[in-house]
């Protein structure tokens, strides 16, 4: 069913903290290893040991340099995967009904048994969240680890997406945005969680926490301004200070 649900029970998604992400690619690779042997066809790697290795990844970390008008340039590591949009254009364009958004939790999925590999959904996505697997010929995308988050075979605390479970810096948070009191909703509210390319009107569920203000020392003058300089001053200070111990 490629019509979008009017409303979903939950709005599951991720908060990605750009102030914390160090760009280590842990999420990229753990996602790859979980998803290559679970939901759907494996994530293949073409020319794996050759001159142009290209594989399917559901999550990739970009690195940007941001240069303010004044002050120092900054480096921002930027993980990107499916944002599970409320108004997901990738779903409605699908001709076969393979792409769908789940009514119960809002996860956008591809039923690979129905996918004909036309690639139109990938064209419709502004974020580059979908990749057509070159070996299997079906569209792959982040499933929000739908096969982990409800999985009775793994401990309850592990029922989060693999990228969240593995992120060493804790820069990724998983939860229900429909619940205003959920940690992801609160983080979004407190830290000004942003939508990517809001002008596309996709209403992405995933939010990005912007980097905090950097390099305060450039604009803030602060110095200890002590005056212990000569040996005499030093001795006097020491004497007084030691007495106080």
């Amino acid at each position: 069913m490629t019509s979008l649900p009017e409303k979903t029970g939950k709005k599951l998604g991720l908060v990605i903290d750009l102030d914390t992400c160090v760009g280590c690619h842990a999420c990229v690779v753990n996602c790859k290893e979980w998803n290559t042997s679970n939901y759907g066809a494996p994530l293949s790697d073409m020319d794996a040991y050759g001159s142009n290795p290209v594989g399917t990844f559901l999550n990739r970390v970009h690195s940007y340099e941001v240069t303010p008008d004044t002050g120092l340039a900054q480096t921002v590591h930027f993980p990107k995967s499916c944002l599970h949009c409320e108004d997901a254009p990738c779903v409605t364009v699908c001709p076969t009904g393979a792409s769908y958004k789940r009514v119960e939790d809002g996860i956008v999925l591809v039923n690979e048994d129905d996918c004909m590999g036309c690639g139109l959904c990938a064209w419709a996505c502004p974020y580059g969240a979908r990749e057509l697997d070159q070996l299997a010929g079906v569209m792959k995308k982040c499933t929000l680890c739908v096969d982990r988050i409800y999985n009775d075979n793994i401990p309850e605390e592990d029922r989060v997406p693999a990228c969240v479970r593995t992120c060493p810096a804790g820069a990724r948070h998983f939860g229900d945005f429909a619940d205003p009191d959920s940690p992801v909703s609160r983080l979004t509210a407190e830290r000004g969680g942003m939508e990517l390319m809001p002008e596309q009107g996709t209403k992405p569920v995933n939010r990005y926490l912007p980097p905090r203000q950097k390099d305060a020392s450039l604009s803030e003058i602060k110095a200890l301004g002590g005056d212990i300089e000569e040996p005499k001053g030093l001795l006097a200070w020491l004497d007084k200070a030691l007495e106080a111990i």
């Binding site: 970009h62 690195s63 340099e65 941001v66 303010p68 900054q74 480096t75 921002v76």
Partner: peptide, 10 residues
Amino acid sequence: IGKVRQLESP
């Protein structure tokens, strides 16, 4: 923050 440019591709 400022002007954005790619530093390194993923």
